[in-house]
Each structure stands twice: as structure tokens, then as C-alpha cells.
Amino acid sequence: MDTSAATVGMIGLGSMGAPVAKRVLAARGELVIHARRPQPELVEAGATWSATPRELASRVDVLLSLLPDLPELETLLDGEDGLLAGAGDLLILIGSTSSAPAVRDLAERLHAQTDGRVRVVDCPVSGGEDGAKAGTLSIMLGGDDQDDVALAADVLAPCGTPVHLGPLGAGEVAKACNQLVVSATILALGEATVLADRSGLNLDRMWRLLAGGYAGSRLLETRRDKLVSGDDSPSGMAKYMVKDLGFASDIAAATGTQAALLPALRAAFDEIVDAGLGERDISVTRRLTAQRGAHAGETRES
């Protein structure tokens, strides 16, 4: 297939999906969408609305899903109004952070149900809402068919940098590795912020200074203001890290890897959720550390 001629559809039009949809629509000139709620802004920009998943699948060659995980996608597959009822030759791009084995199992089931008409490439992303809006996402592709991977890369190119990392599921493995690093970094940043604050340092000056050294990172760049102010209003909610780290643990078990950090990170993010802070931004690690280490007479930490 001429990749430029492929008609693209999207489901999962939330905080990440909506800006991705805008970029795909702007690049390709058309986009077919379906969602639980109306999307007047996208329709006004030129997207075509489909009333049901079946109608959506019947209109497209490629379907990008940015739903939270596979269970949300699976609810839309079957039934008389489901995606499979309307699908012809269809490539489904799974952009959620999901289990690599579960992605492979789903692909096998779809292949069997449709005599190979429906194929899967996994394409989780990293970069957050800022990256989605700017078109600078890191896009991790996993797929067995080179033509399908090439088509996925062409569709996703307006949103960032798509890189083929290996067979189906490889993207999800890479995303699990990404989340391991992200969770470790944001936990370290939160703890360091509390240490510095309780020692009387100017937090803004410190993080601007350290950002120029080995402590610098994209995560520090995007979360510095939140760490300094203590404003952990949500951008990327902390509760999703529990699921992501669970997938990383599954990969560690499957590969015989005895990770040192991973159990501690899972425990920390479980603690965040148990404390009722799961819907806060991941920079809530500052608040977690402060609450855990609170002591009588402490006045410095808000």
C-alpha cells in the first residue's frame, strides 16, 4: 500500500490522544475518529466522525489506539457494532503502555478471527502531553511485518520519532524500560527536593544549576516548576506508573532478571496510590517523601 494514501482512524482521544490526532490530521489532511464523547474541536478541524466502532473500522486502513490499555480496546472489538464487524484489511496500532505478551496474544487472536485481515503493530510513546503537542514523542515500534511497520512509521512520523526496535511486543518492552528509568528519576527528584528544602536551599536556583550537570534530564526540565512549587496537579498521573511497573516486573520475571530498583519503585508508587495521591502528577513524589518523613515541629515543607 502507498502509505500516503492510507486512511487513518483514531480511538482514545484523551490528554495524549487529542494532540496526536491534531498532528496526524494536519499532516494527512483527513482523519476518522470515534470516542465516547463528541469531539467538536477535531471535527471542526476536519476530522470525520464515526458513530460506532464498526463504522470507524469500515472507513479506515489504519487504526491508531491511544486508549489506556488493552482491556479498553478489547471492549470495542466484538459485537455487531464492534471494530471487527466493520474491518476489512486493517492495521491496528496499539499506542497504549501494555503487556508485551498480551499484545502478542491479541494479535494472534485477531489473525485467527479474521483470516489474517487484521494485523497489529505496537507503538507506545514517551514524552507526555508536551511531546504530543510539539510532535517530539519517542515512538517505540514493535512488529513482524516490515510493510506494516513502515506504514505505522509513516502514520506516526508527524508526532515524533518512530523507531522499529524488534518483533511484535518490542515497543512494549522498550516502554517498560522507559518507565523504569522515569519512575526512578522522578522518585530521586522528589526526595532530593525535600532534602534541599529542609536544608534551606533555594530550590529554583538549585535545580536550574543541577540541570546543567549529570543530574539534568528531560524529566527535570518538564517537572522543575512543579517540584519547586509543590504543585503536583496532574499532567501524567502517578497511578498509571503502578500498571507500567507491573509490566516491567513481568518482563524481568520472563527474562530471569533480578532487578534491584524495580521492587522498591513498585512499592513507592503503590504507596502513592494507597495514600490517595494516585491522580496527582508523578512529581507527587516530593509530597510522598515529605509526608513519610514528616516530624513534629517541621515547618519548612508545605
Rank of each mutant, 00 (worst) to 15 (best):
1 M>S: 10
2 D>N: 09
3 T>C: 00
8 V>R: 03
9 G>M: 03
12 G>A: 05
18 A>V: 11
20 V>F: 00
22 K>T: 03
24 V>K: 03
25 L>H: 00
26 A>V: 08
27 A>D: 00
28 R>T: 02
30 E>M: 11
33 I>S: 01
39 Q>I: 02
50 S>K: 14
54 R>I: 11
56 L>Y: 15
58 S>V: 06
60 V>F: 13
64 L>V: 13
67 L>A: 04
75 T>L: 06
81 D>Q: 15
84 L>V: 03
91 L>T: 00
94 I>Q: 02
94 I>N: 01
95 G>S: 11
97 T>A: 04
97 T>F: 02
102 A>S: 10
105 D>F: 00
110 L>E: 04
122 D>T: 13
123 C>W: 06
125 V>A: 01
127 G>S: 05
128 G>N: 06
135 G>Y: 15
135 G>R: 15
136 T>A: 11
140 M>V: 12
140 M>L: 11
141 L>A: 06
142 G>L: 07
143 G>A: 01
144 D>C: 08
146 Q>E: 10
149 V>R: 00
154 D>L: 02
154 D>K: 05
155 V>D: 02
158 P>N: 09
165 L>N: 03
167 P>E: 05
167 P>T: 13
169 G>Q: 06
169 G>C: 07
180 L>H: 09
183 S>C: 15
183 S>M: 14
184 A>E: 11
185 T>Q: 13
185 T>W: 09
187 L>I: 04
188 A>R: 07
191 E>L: 07
191 E>T: 04
192 A>C: 01
195 L>Y: 14
198 R>T: 10
206 M>V: 14
209 L>I: 07
211 A>M: 06
216 G>S: 07
219 L>R: 00
220 L>C: 08
223 R>W: 13
223 R>F: 12
225 D>S: 14
227 L>A: 08
229 S>A: 08
231 D>K: 14
231 D>I: 07
233 S>M: 03
235 S>N: 03
237 M>D: 01
239 K>L: 03
241 M>Q: 04
248 A>Y: 01
248 A>Q: 08
253 A>T: 15
255 T>R: 15
259 A>M: 12
261 L>M: 14
263 P>Y: 10
264 A>L: 15
265 L>G: 13
268 A>Q: 07
270 D>C: 06
282 I>F: 08
282 I>K: 03
285 T>M: 12
288 L>V: 08
293 G>P: 04
296 A>I: 15
297 G>P: 10
